[in-house]
């Protein structure tokens, strides 16, 4: 337990000092501000691009457009940046040998994996919260009359998908030596989820639903209860991946 806390503190210190926390926060803050802005400006931009003779008529932008931008950016660029930033979570320490020294001092390997996972979750949570807060504020400012439903639940689903993805990532990191290997395995896992999503019956249980059904939830075209199974499965899988990482890492010859 002491090792876990000390190492967690070191991890947070590391993300601050290596500017990784800064990058995450800035990227998500930029998304947070630009989401509603793009939603507002997109029709005007398209109209100004239209040449004579072609008339583009677009409906007035609404809060839904802002949230559409939010979920599009967060699930695509947002998650990609997150995974790239964290891809070296173990490989950088193992290839340099910085970890061996602390392990010989009595730091347990379980504590290493758990605190690394915790720290990634904290950084992800802070980033997505910042992004959400900014988008929310500006959306209310730009589209004060529009109402959305299930907004918090929808964002919670996205957040949980991030947790699942980070569990896959740390599991991949224990399997490989390089950060590219880690990226590759994580990528393969996401693609596998996407392929499984082709089968309609699987959709209910597939973790990826948490990152694809968000707009449906807000527009009320998807029932909240239809995601319960996916939430349960994602939690279970995250738990399994983290425990597997601990088991594998404990047996790894360093």
């Amino acid at each position: 337990m002491r090792g876990y806390l000390v190492f967690l503190k070191k991890e947070i210190f590391e993300y601050t000092k290596t500017y990784k926390l800064l990058i995450m926060l800035v990227v998500f803050a930029i998304f947070g501000i630009t989401n509603p802005l793009i939603a507002k400006l997109l029709p005007e931009i398209l109209e100004s691009l239209a040449t004579d003779g072609v008339i583009i008529t677009l409906p007035d932008p609404t809060a839904y457009d802002a949230w559409e931008q939010f979920f599009k950016n967060a699930t695509q660029m947002g998650l990609i940046v997150t995974v790239i930033i964290f891809s070296g979570v173990l490989s950088s320490e193992l290839s340099k040998g910085t970890l061996i020294n602390l392990l010989t001092k009595g730091l347990s390997r379980t504590a290493v994996i758990l605190s690394k996972y915790t720290c990634m979750v904290l950084v992800w949570t802070a980033s997505i919260a910042l992004c959400f807060g900014l988008t929310y504020g500006y959306t209310v400012y730009l589209f004060p009359k529009d109402e959305t439903s299930n907004l918090l639940f929808s964002v919670f689903c996205l957040w949980l998908f991030g947790l699942f993805l980070l569990a896959v990532l740390i599991f991949s990191a224990t399997l490989t030596k390089s950060n590219y290997g880690c990226l590759l395995i994580t990528f393969v896992a996401v693609v596998a989820c996407m392929i499984m999503d082709i089968i309609p019956a699987m959709h209910r249980y597939n973790p990826i639903s948490l990152a694809t059904d968000n707009m449906g939830l807000i527009m009320n075209s998807i029932e909240v209860s239809s995601l319960y199974s996916a939430i349960l499965i994602s939690c279970l899988l995250s738990l399994i991946f983290v425990s597997l990482s601990v088991t594998i890492f404990r047996r790894k010859q360093l």
Partner: peptide, 23 residues
Amino acid sequence: EYLPFLIPLVILQFALSITALIH
């Protein structure tokens, strides 16, 4: 109308550029 968007974006850009430049 867009000043509330531009100010934070400009601040972010400046902060980021200057931190990076110093580094």
